[in-house]
């Protein structure tokens, strides 16, 4: 290693964060080169000089003025719904998860309902839509038809139960709208807090 290469690595070497084999190479070079050794000593002296800086002593007046000013400010409190703020991402994740589960359940219910349309007499437009869907699937998917039939049979029992519960799809939708509103509220609250927080807080 030549001098200029060693000098470019001296800071890292001093911090003991230089990886091997460079660290050994730098150590070996510094042991024999007075110029680079002097530069390393310079780093040590700068650091030692900073470590030796004596503590400054603020005036007692500063203590009095801080506490006097603090007394004029509104008292801090634990913050309304501080847990909600602290856990807002968890709340958002839970809400999103619930919404996703609800949406998936609704989708299954709608699919089964449509698919069973032709088996279910008197379902009106739902039956027509189901029959149309089946005709379309039959016409376009050929070999997929058997699979589609099997899938339908497999969920037939579930379908009946869901069909009975079909009105609850409305409840799902209402619940999801509620969850979405709650998420928006929590995010807005988080943003508002962010706006008044200094950039320095951790």
């Amino acid at each position: 290693m030549n001098c200029s290469r060693v000098k470019s690595l001296l800071e890292e070497y001093f911090e003991e964060s230089l990886p091997e084999p460079q660290a050994t190479a730098v150590a070996a070079h510094v042991a024999t080169c007075t110029d680079c050794a002097a530069e390393l000593r310079q780093i040590e002296r700068v650091v030692a000089a900073l470590a030796a800086v004596p503590a400054a002593v603020p005036s007692e007046e500063l203590l009095r003025s801080i506490t006097a000013r603090a007394a004029e400010l509104p008292r801090p409190d634990r913050g309304r719904m501080v847990w909600l703020r602290r856990w807002r991402w968890a709340v958002v994740a839970a809400g999103t998860g619930m919404a996703a589960v609800g949406a998936a359940a609704s989708a299954v219910a709608v699919l089964v309902w449509l698919g069973l349309g032709s088996h279910v007499p008197g379902s009106g437009w739902v039956a027509d839509a189901g029959a149309f869907l089946r005709r379309w699937v039959d016409a376009t998917s050929g070999g997929m038809v058997a699979l589609w039939e099997q899938a339908l049979e497999a969920v037939y029992g579930l379908g009946l139960a869901l069909q009975a519960a079909a009105p609850t799809i409305g409840v799902y939708v209402a619940a999801e709208v509620g969850i979405l509103l709650a998420i928006v509220f929590v995010l807005r609250m988080g943003r508002r807090r962010e706006a008044v927080r200094p950039t320095v807080l951790i």
Binding site: R69, A70, L73
Partner: peptide
């Protein structure tokens, strides 16, 4: 220093 403490105070929660 005063500003730092007042900031800490109002954000203590």
């Amino acid at each position: 220093t005063q500003e730092a403490f007042l900031r800490a105070y109002t954000r203590l929660d």
